[in-house]
Design a protein around this nucleic acid. Structure first.
Lengths: 222, 222
DNA sequence: GATGATTTGTACGTATGTATA
DNA sequence: ATATACATACGTACAAATCAT
């Protein structure tokens, strides 16, 4: 079950470096440098770069190479908007087609997250949060939509790392999750859509405030 | 503004061959053969194949090459389901954010299509239909969602070629479009969503009947 | 089941186009 | 503005794995 080709393994490694913040947005990905760093030739590096470009995590311009995707605030708005729509769609589908077992497991996870909120372990909450949303993706029972949702989440990950640092964000997030869970358990598709849409819109707001408060110098690479 | 790199041009050419039915679903894409056919080396062919694989139009398996994506009926159902959701989302967004000019242009196209229905030119209707839906994608004012919708449409194109051959499908399609246009003009987001969702569900039904009625032998290539 | 043919994956060299001085 | 340097895109060669006999 291991990744089969070198290019795929490389794509994973590079993606990790991006998501962990090791390669910041705007960082230029030099083919030769990456080939050296990972001890392979440039060919699989090129293929890995193309693979990642297809997910939108990095940009490639002909004859000008690849760099970690940077986003203007307008593009970020589009991405967050798309994510809100797709996550809401997943919630709608989940409300319609989750099995009783899946509903129970979702409820159980939500309940478990209450304890994490109280303990104020924000990294743990962030991890559990991903699991929570993933359960809803899977509960939608549509692999295409679920993959797109996952792809959007990965693409936004570099810009969301600090989202739960905002004071009180975890507890508000948990309350919003509660509305989503309630609607899904009740098989109320349109309520699930609305609740998730609002949740994701508030995530965007929370990010927006963070964004406005900082002026990190970007474009370290190149 | 021309396509910059050979790989991109090749990807377009290959995609055309797939969408036109020249390369049918299941057809095996031999790297060397394609390189010869287009008079280039294998390297850009490989890149073009990876490009198309990222859209889902073709499948690549490590060490086993690429072939035009074939789909089981279960996968087709998933694809059609995803398309219905995303198109409905586009309609919802369009109802909320189309400019007055875009609304007028949409209405104009819809009106123009009435004449095509009467003349019974099904190829012309199919072309106008794509334009109609594209206008709604663009009217959603969210490039990410619009691109995904377009990608799904291209991916399903090989399986939809004959959709308007069903007797009376064009006129029913036009009526359904009417409901979508009316809702969008009225800025009624949830009505637009519902109307488009129903339209796309009926498209799927129409395809399903066609599919059931034929037993083409597939897998010509290899 | 083993062997040979074909094809993919990888490595490396070369040339063109971009960016710098 | 011209020229130089450098990274990317493409071509070619080899190795490894699949398939066909």
């Amino acid at each position: 079950m291991e990744a089969a080709t070198q290019a795929e393994r490389l794509a994973d490694s590079i993606a990790d470096s991006v998501l962990s913040g090791d390669f910041p947005p705007g960082f230029h990905l030099d083919e030769t440098a990456l080939a050296e760093r990972f001890g392979v030739s440039r060919t699989p590096v090129r293929e890995a770069i193309r693979l990642l470009a297809s997910t939108g995590l990095i940009d490639v311009k002909p004859r000008r190479g690849a760099s970690v995707a940077t986003a203007t605030s307008a593009q970020l708005e589009t991405l967050f908007g798309a994510m809100a729509e797709i996550e809401a769609t997943c919630a709608r589908l989940a409300a319609m087609s989750m099995t009783p077992i899946e509903r129970r497991r979702l409820q159980a996870r939500h309940d478990a997250m209450a304890a994490i909120v109280l303990s104020d372990e924000r990294d743990a909450y962030a991890a559990a949060n991903i699991e929570f949303h993933t359960q809803i993706y899977l509960g939608a029972h549509n692999e295409i939509v679920a993959n797109f949702a996952g792809s959007l989440r990965r693409r936004l990950a570099p810009f969301r790392r600090a989202q739960f640092r905002t004071e009180g964000r975890t507890s508000r997030s948990h309350v919003e999750h509660g509305a989503v869970v309630k609607a899904i358990i009740a098989c109320d598709a349109s309520a699930a859509h609305a609740a998730m849409f609002q949740h994701m819109s508030l995530v965007e707001d929370s990010f927006g405030r963070l964004e406005a408060a900082r002026e990190r110098k970007s474009g370290q690479g190149h």
